[in-house]
Amino acid sequence: MELLMIAVIGILFGCGTYLLLQAHLLQIIVGLALFSHGANLALMVSGGLKRGGPPLLTIGAPYADPLPQALILTAIVISFGVTAFALVLAFLTKQVCVSNDVDELAGG
């Protein structure tokens, strides 16, 4: 099971990288979103994957490792905040610099 998830994470990072290398800011932001999905799943894997054992102390052991879940929660919130910022930045960039194409931006 872990192996499958690791493969999925690899795919997420691979596709994320591909998008990062594209020219449009929206693509880049989507690539970053894929990165953060991948990283969150990686944290999930780091606690060991367990089915049917949510760490709620009402249902009885064995529980899944709760720490990675807490960490992912933090990571999701942070990446949401930052992605929102990046998106607005792209939006403003379009308004001020007329383009969202990083090559055109660099070209001045």
């Binding site: 493969a7 994470i9 691979g14 596709c15 591909y18 290398l21």
Partner: peptide, 11 residues
């Protein structure tokens, strides 16, 4: 190549 490589390395 970079995309495949980085996916592979992460995995």
């Amino acid at each position: 190549a970079l995309s495949v490589g980085s996916g592979l390395v992460v995995a």
